[in-house]
Write a protein that binds this DNA or RNA. Structure first.
Lengths: 227, 227
DNA sequence: TGTACATCAGTGAACGCGCGTTCACTGATGTAC
DNA sequence: TGTACATCAGTGAACGCGCGTTCACTGATGTAC
């Protein structure tokens, strides 16, 4: 996957640098090769040296740009959250004006993103390998904010208004469903079980169900658990 | 957590063996110390040597019982699936005769298990560290079979009968929801978002929602996605 | 337009580390006769 | 009840490995005057 990057400062001369001392766009190149390593060997199998190797650079070079291994992985994860946010935004737009449709399409977007970028997606939640600093938190929060906005619309809340308990629960339920589905699908459980259905149909059917079931969202939820 | 094990052959003399050459119940002791390491350092931080160290044994000793590191971790994961199966069975029983209640309580059991045994639960899905052999597959399959049984009951299928597409989809939806919720809760998202609700209430509200939404389970699901 | 110089972005050898696994071994156990 | 012997379950030293990071360094770049 993506051995090249459309980084602005990339000098001409092809992906391998032609004997020049300075790389010119090493930061971007390292991010790209890190993604390659992740895609090929998983989070478990990632090493900083291998990423440097693939970028055609000495093992000490990444330190100049990222400090250490966690720094590089965090950069990849942040880009991942930005990509996820983009996918959610596109889904939201597909949903038009109807909050239920917006949420449903966001769910489809979430799952599509996860299955299109498995390694990146898995990395995003492996906090033990990341530096969970402010930038990271903001990227993750921005993605989540897109879900929150649609939830607000569905719950009759204004933009930026604090979520009610019911709204929070609805957001968590929706997120749980697509998050769990994405992970199971990445583990190959979907292939084994999904019958003839596509992902889109599945998510589009299940997601409104959870949302409808949450308190404050219609009568379907009133089943009380037995103590 | 559990530095001792109630293994049958455990000789007297306390948890550290008293200068004896043979351990007596090393297999069980290694499983227990592996769980300790996992709980303390996560799957990422697990090493075979550390597990051996904590069992008070040389680094070569585990090979006699488990072959290699994956063998020991697989043993832990298998025990994990057996524990999960037990939790599901208990939930199922709590649900009584009503299939919907059985499924709901299984969901509660699933999440409770995950949050009571975080390291074990996470390990169970880290297949890259496991030897996914027949025993492992059977343990995982047995746990999943308990969900399937309740789904069959809800869909009017006899015991052991093949699942219809709708039933498979329902099982996957239910599993996705609790699986995603468990992972998010383990990441601390639940604390941040759940308002005043307990896990039980949350799962018990959301799970019937997904199930009701799946095809063949009532009118709520017929929302068609926009292409 | 030149030139001195600070800063940037790399090198590559080396460090120490802990790992999983192998090896020849030995103490303990159990079994056949 | 003894005894020979096979097997089991450990030891502990050693192997080679690749890792992340550090180090003194140097080539390239850019900027002030």
């Amino acid at each position: 996957m993506a051995a090249n990057v459309d980084g602005a400062g990339r000098p001409p001369g092809g992906p391998a640098r032609g004997g020049r001392y300075h790389h010119g766009a090493l930061r971007e190149a390292l991010v790209a090769s890190a993604e390659d390593v992740l895609a090929e060997r998983g989070v478990e199998g990632f090493t900083l040296r291998e990423a440097a190797r693939r970028a055609g650079v000495s093992p000490a070079a990444p330190a100049h740009h990222f400090g250490d291994a966690a720094g590089l992985l965090t950069e990849v994860a942040i880009l991942g959250f930005e990509g996820l946010a983009q996918a959610l935004r596109e889904g939201d737009a597909r949903g038009g004006a109807d909050p239920a449709a917006r949420l449903r399409e966001q769910g489809v977007g979430y799952v599509d993103f996860a299955l299109s970028h498995p390694a990146r997606f898995k990395l995003m939640f492996r906090e033990e390998r990341l530096r969970c600093d402010e930038r990271f938190g903001q990227a993750a929060g921005a993605a989540f904010g897109i879900l929150q906005d649609a939830i607000r619309a569905q719950h009759g809340l204004g933009p930026g208004e604090a979520l009610t308990d019911a709204a929070r629960a609805a957001a968590l339920a929706a997120w749980s469903l697509v998050h769990g589905f994405a992970h199971l699908a990445l583990d190959g459980q979907f292939d084994r079980m999904a019958g003839g259905q596509g992902r889109r149909v599945f998510v589009a059917a299940a997601l409104p169900g959870v949302l409808a079931a949450m308190p404050g969202q219609g009568p379907a939820a009133s089943t009380k658990p037995s103590p």
